[in-house]
Design a protein around this nucleic acid. Structure first.
Lengths: 331, 331
DNA sequence: ATATATAATGTAAACGTTTACATTGCTGTT
DNA sequence: AACAGCAATGTAAACGTTTACATTATATAT
């Protein structure tokens, strides 16, 4: 019982083709017929059947968004950012979380083959050959959002993990720190390894001697940060600052440090990476790196829409979104 | 160029109707034809065109999810939970954020009239007559997720704001606190007013004398909590515990208290509401109330799917999801 | 006024699937 | 062997929109 162009056509005494043209606006329709059709459409509260439109056009104006198997505080920001951008360009956003019941490849296959989306964005913490294969199996355009752009011949939007970690070290060096420790993230995580690499290369550039025992291992959890920090504090030569590969581990360091009565940043300084909500309010507030999630979503969506429109640029594009050093009181 | 049932039909030497029936499984098709069709479908890597299916069936298996104009850390959990439930029932999830560019009513109208979704869930912090009107304007089923179930004749899933606030006070009373202050949230926010109501009624039941000056006003931000707390600390008769209507304000209290050198919970105790990520890691960890977002999403999605399937229960359902008191070190 | 070009509109097919209805094939009963 | 009854399959229409192509109306040039 929703209004269709047929009813408009009848009421306006024109053919459905004219109605369609008047509504889509781009074809040649006489000004007054167009006005009439628009008026009647409005009057009847007509809304185009999007499913029918997508179906007949053979392409969908729905953008798929594949989320990985983890809950992350910044996902809702990315989702919102992508949805905003999509909306402004006349697209809708469909989410698809991967989890125990639905694997990532299954999600990709649905995106590729069901026709339900015209393109998709994949939030992907790591890549493997199975995923690559799935991504190469179809012709639906997509863009990746990842921590690493070295993941094959795909369009990808990344954070500048390496650069930011590098700059963090530079900042610490300028501040006068000499003994810098690092707590790294999971070894199979791209963000983690790039941050570590940035750390190491910066240290090497600025002639900071990194003791092996100062390269602690964590897994991005607060607990692992706490544990790693305790270990560092037990070294006979203690670092004077710890650069954790993410904020959660940095806050774990807070715990370890406070528990033995030391003070940040007086006794030891801490820095993190991510600028999660809590970091601003921690005591002391945490110096860290803010990822521009808003921009990441926007850039990814814009690039995807470009591809969906079949516009010019066919070459693979790697876009790195700059993060920002957020200087607070922890160092 | 995606595979269609036509190609399967040709290859299997049957009509497209038989293919359709074999694939949908529910009609009477001979066992061996069914097997043959399924085999060929698999072999050709057939995926049904969902747009076409939805279109011809006149209904969509996409569930819309309308998000309000705020970024909230628990949204990604709700989104995930809804998507999980949808997926398990054969549905997809489409998000639609409301914001400056797209009003809430506009989102509702799209959901109602474009045919793109078969039903939708509305995350809604408050309701007004314009929204009510929009909701009453169509025939697409929907479910609300709100802080208050007293928002008209709609299916709604709520948190038990009132009950939980009530129980928080009970808990504080049992703990021996006598002078309880409250920092309320925005006056037009349902969650906020129900929490305040629960607080007041519990105080009244347990004969807790609530001084007028102990009813501070905030707006859910950390700053407002800090300010309200400072004011409370300047009263000649200070409360011995402050129950903030949300965690952010509770953490604002932390700031105010620490800044003048007092200790929590020794000098004054604090409790919150929401159990945001940061609360567990605050110092001291915050006693608060955890909203079961996972369950909220699941229940809302299940109820919506029930309605979309046109199953039995047509009467309005108000479902209140129980929250959990999380006892930590701040009181 | 006529011919021509072009603008406006109409006609009808197409998209992939489901499904009401029609037809065919098979089984068992007499 | 004839027929009923039902199971299996086929035929074709339908869904709402767009769009290639056909037709008609209008404007322009002669």
């Amino acid at each position: 019982m929703p209004i269709t162009i047929k009813q408009i056509a009848k009421k306006a005494n024109v053919s459905i083709a004219t109605v369609s043209r008047a509504l889509s606006g781009d074809s040649k329709v006489r000004e007054d017929t167009k006005k009439l059709v628009l008026k009647i459409a409005k009057q009847l509260n007509y809304n185009p059947n999007i499913l029918a439109r997508n179906f007949v056009k053979g392409k969908s104006n729905i953008i798929g968004l594949v989320l990985p198997d983890i809950s992350d505080e910044y996902f809702s920001e990315i989702i919102r950012s992508i949805d905003d951008t999509s909306y402004l360009n006349g697209y809708y956003t469909m989410v698809m979380s991967s989890h125990e019941n639905r694997s990532l490849t299954e999600s990709i296959n649905t995106m590729m083959n069901s026709g339900i989306v015209g393109g998709f964005i994949l939030l992907i913490p790591f890549i493997n050959s199975e995923i690559k294969k799935a991504l190469n199996s179809g012709s639906v355009p997509f863009v990746l959002i990842s921590g690493d752009d070295d993941i094959g011949d795909f369009d990808v939007v990344t954070t500048d993990n390496y650069q930011s970690a590098f700059r963090m070290v530079e900042f610490l060096v300028v501040k006068g720190y000499k003994k810098i420790a690092h707590i790294s993230g999971p070894p199979d995580n791209n963000d983690a390894s790039l941050r570590k690499k940035g750390f190491l290369n910066a240290c090497s550039k600025y002639k900071i001697d990194v003791k092996k025992s100062w390269l602690a291992k964590g897994n991005f959890t607060m607990e692992s940060g706490e544990k790693a920090c305790s270990k560092l504090l037990n070294e006979k030569e203690k670092p004077d600052v710890i650069f954790a590969a993410n904020d959660m581990m940095a806050l774990g360091c807070y715990k370890a440090i406070h528990s033995i009565g030391l003070k940040i940043p007086v006794d030891i300084a801490i820095t993190g990476f991510d600028d999660i909500l809590i970091s601003e309010y921690a005591n002391p507030s945490l110096t860290t790196i803010r990822v521009d999630t808003d921009r990441i979503g926007k850039v990814a969506a814009e690039r995807l829409i470009e591809k969906m429109n079949g516009s010019i640029n066919k070459t693979i594009q790697k876009k790195e979104i700059a993060s920002q050093l957020v200087i607070r009181s922890s160092c």
